[in-house]
Computed example of a mutant assay.
Amino acid sequence: MYEPLFEYIQRYSNEPLTNEEKEIVKSAFELKKLRKRQYFLEEGKVCTHTGFVFKGAFRQFSVDESGIEHILQLAIENWWVVDRESFLNQTPSKYFIEAWEDSLLLVFPINKLDEILRIPAINTMFWQMSQNNHIASQKRVEDTITLNPIKRYENFQRHYPEIVQRFPQHQIASYLGIARETLSRARKPIR
């Protein structure tokens, strides 16, 4: 059950875990099952856990004053779900994190963070994840500013085809910040 997580750690750290370190990871993480539409985190609550998606799909979103959802993240297997600000600062979240499919996560609580960061491979992995997240966020902002909506969708589809297949069109449009109708035009084959 922990093998995908161990492989992920090694891939992002380039360091194998020792058997002792694997036992520390196993004692820090626990399996959590969520049904489709069940929340991992609700707005206004403090994010006390971070989760590695073992199986399933999630969306992180906020709801504005008009009741419109704005999707911040879509996640599938081998991705992490967390509201970083709420988790690290232990403050109420502005977001919901919802299972879009029946899902399994390996989760660990904030009070285990220091313990697992003492493992060199995990420390390196978290640093690399942070760097990758920053670069991806920067790229997303740049794409939003410089690319037309159809080009944004084409880039997203090229880089994340599995997500395009697993989430409905209106959620992908929300994530990309484009109108649903524009996304419908982008998805039609050109003749």
Score class of each variant (00 low, 15 high):
127 W>F: 09
101 E>V: 04
102 D>H: 05
100 W>Y: 13
138 Q>Y: 06
48 T>A: 15
146 T>F: 07
170 H>D: 08
138 Q>D: 10
135 I>M: 02
14 N>L: 14
131 Q>A: 11
96 F>I: 03
188 K>I: 14
14 N>V: 05
71 I>V: 15
66 S>K: 15
58 F>T: 00
130 S>C: 09
40 F>C: 04
66 S>H: 12
7 E>V: 08
179 A>G: 11
181 E>Y: 08
142 E>W: 12
45 K>C: 08
41 L>F: 06
2 Y>W: 10
22 K>V: 05
35 R>T: 12
67 G>I: 07
181 E>I: 10
173 A>F: 04
99 A>R: 00
183 L>N: 00
109 P>N: 14
166 R>P: 02
48 T>K: 15
154 E>M: 10
139 K>H: 12
11 R>D: 15
43 E>N: 09
61 F>A: 08
157 Q>I: 07
53 V>E: 01
139 K>A: 12
118 R>K: 13
186 A>S: 07
96 F>S: 00
15 E>V: 09
43 E>M: 14
57 A>Q: 00
156 F>G: 01
3 E>H: 07
170 H>L: 06
183 L>Q: 00
39 Y>R: 10
126 F>P: 03
7 E>N: 06
142 E>C: 14
19 N>V: 12
146 T>Q: 10
112 K>C: 05
60 Q>R: 14
114 D>V: 11
3 E>A: 14
180 R>W: 06
161 P>S: 08
101 E>T: 13
134 H>P: 00
119 I>F: 03
39 Y>C: 08
17 L>I: 11
49 H>E: 11
83 D>K: 02
129 M>N: 09
146 T>P: 04
123 N>R: 13
77 E>L: 12
185 R>D: 12
10 Q>S: 05
173 A>N: 03
123 N>W: 10
131 Q>T: 12
169 Q>G: 01
86 S>L: 02
27 S>R: 14
99 A>F: 01
110 I>F: 12
176 L>A: 08
41 L>D: 00
41 L>G: 01
93 S>K: 01
164 V>P: 03
112 K>I: 03
189 P>R: 12
13 S>K: 01
130 S>H: 06
108 F>K: 02
105 L>K: 07
143 D>G: 06
49 H>S: 04
66 S>R: 10
187 R>K: 15
156 F>W: 01
88 L>C: 13
178 I>L: 08
97 I>W: 00
44 G>P: 02
88 L>I: 13
175 Y>M: 10
70 H>W: 14
156 F>K: 00
25 V>M: 06
26 K>P: 11
141 V>P: 00
181 E>N: 07
155 N>E: 10
38 Q>S: 09
62 S>A: 08
138 Q>F: 11
107 V>M: 13
141 V>K: 11
74 L>M: 10
73 Q>M: 09
66 S>G: 15
178 I>N: 02
